[in-house]
Design a protein around this nucleic acid. Sequence first.
DNA 1: CGTTATATGGAGAACGTTCTACATTTCATC
DNA 2: GATGAAATGTAGAACGTTCTCCATATAACG
Lengths: 349, 349
Amino acid sequence: MSVEDKQKPQRNDRVTIRTVATHAGVSVAAVSKVMRNAYGVSEALRAKVTDAIEALGYRPSRAARGLRGRSFTIGVLLIDIRNPFLPDVIAGVNGVLAPSHYQAMIGVSNARVQLETSLIESMIDYKMDGLVLVAPRLPSEILAKFAVQIPIVAVGYHDASATAFDTVNADDQRGAEIAVEALLACGYRGIEMLSLGEREGHAVSVVRQREIGYRRAMQRCGFGASAPIGKIPMASPKREETMRKFLSRQDRPRAVFCWSDLDAITLLSLAMEMGVRVPDDLAVIGYDNSSTAALGLVNLASIDQSGRELGQVATRALISRIEGRTASEHILQIPSLVSRGSLIGSDTK
Amino acid sequence: MSVEDKQKPQRNDRVTIRTVATHAGVSVAAVSKVMRNAYGVSEALRAKVTDAIEALGYRPSRAARGLRGRSFTIGVLLIDIRNPFLPDVIAGVNGVLAPSHYQAMIGVSNARVQLETSLIESMIDYKMDGLVLVAPRLPSEILAKFAVQIPIVAVGYHDASATAFDTVNADDQRGAEIAVEALLACGYRGIEMLSLGEREGHAVSVVRQREIGYRRAMQRCGFGASAPIGKIPMASPKREETMRKFLSRQDRPRAVFCWSDLDAITLLSLAMEMGVRVPDDLAVIGYDNSSTAALGLVNLASIDQSGRELGQVATRALISRIEGRTASEHILQIPSLVSRGSLIGSDTK
DNA sequence: CGTTATATGGAGAACGTTCTACATTTCATC
DNA sequence: GATGAAATGTAGAACGTTCTCCATATAACG
């Protein structure tokens, strides 16, 4: 509007720590001290500086911060964004972070080890302050190597012997036991587990843990150590085909424990389509108690491991590690059963 | 192991551009040039440098890069991580980014304007190269202000008059028309829309656009301009209560068009629970064609706007803008109907 | 009043890149 | 050979912070 409109400051208008210092009539170092509320700042100085910050709308550059010190960002790595269990974890992370000055940035690896690695490296290169890895695929040694460079908490990754990083898990073995016990308590006898058919069978993975729990519960109840475990491939076309085959088997079990709601729900859908009645012909119990399982239409009994809580606990652990803790922590939550129609018919029809 | 174990380089072992330069026997600037494959690099030089990079396992620091030039990161802002439509968008973004040297970092705003603002600011402060905002809540003027500082593409945000940023949308008005037309074609006459009950009624929001399309289609078919639109609150307790009330109305319409699968699916669940048969008593059509809608158990007819494609198109637009385009683009995709059991019974029972 | 502690503020060197200028070499072309 | 033009490589100044020393001012104490 004014005649004095300048051309120059069009892009060069970034308010830096220097602008603030000049405006407040103090040194750059002083402003920095106030920002980090470091030692050696008088009330008068603080007031001057905060006023200037307010007046100019100053925001420190995260990039520059990261170059020298902390970036106040924590990275979250998700294996997969479609699994409805993961948003719960994110919600937990964000809940804990919200009141703090930390912020979360999320990366999605799509279960690709390659991408997972490069994402972790990127987060390190951004000088993020810490990482929450949700169900990472990388082997423990590699994670340990990364953990030297940045504080790490792994969620959904069983390695209680790791010393370089922390782990936060629901007790997946126990969860599987609870599932089996629930099926037995309902009187079902022929019980099978449907697990994930993956080449990698790390004991670190939650899937493997659930298999162990399933086997143990079956054995304890006298059904032999080699209780049957079916493998469902991950990729979509094969996946449904395998399930259909399972459903049409003539020696189909009376009840099935699925390693994840994701599979359980698809199974339920196919069962309906193929005329297999649930739970009359086949009882189903899933894992994660995802929001979809809770839908009236789906009505899937499931093991609840409170993703939200896992996210919260993991974040708190990470922050304590960022703030200096060095001894590793391995936290185990107890999962619980949420009974629904797929386990035992609600109506006495 | 060796006796010469040094204490010093324990943390100081970062391989920087300087390490590479020394190792290759060239200048720092030369290495930088190779990295950015800038003009003025001979084959011999390039070979020396890439060898050194390989040998040392050098990765440029994103933090330092961001401070001076590009960071090769694009920020994605999600309004909500629970809506199963959004993972599709992410998949599209990642698909386009994967072969490039760009990487995506995701922030989740949980529909909070405050958080959305601070996340955008953070991404700017990280010197990210561009932003994909998915269904942002901020008004257009504010977005325009941000767009001066960083290239922005908004997805699910209708503002074809914006000059500072691009928009990528499915044609939500058309989508709603298609839905209404489909219901009419099935012979249903009493049709209502269930929309989102929010204070904010920006025309930019997809919800409002769908309402407009619904009204227009109804009017065109002779059902008056004031076709009824019910409002469903977002928060969970009130939400279901409102739906129950709707379902038990004695003047309940014959068919309903829901603004989102999210609501449609809950409605389907409640309908089953309350004994309202779908589609015999009530036909339902949703929006988004989310993965949940496709489940056999749910079997919800829905308007497909291919989130994946939106993500791809948006990312390509963003990259072209990063690379210099200044004129704004406003892209509109045509949605399509996916007919399923909630629209017309598949079996002739 | 000296002398010593303590509290307060500032100078300036990192941090690891990018990128503008410039210096040098190589190559045509006359 | 001389003369530009083009190609190739380098020095070094940013970028916006943090943080270690230092310098000074003030308080405490005998």
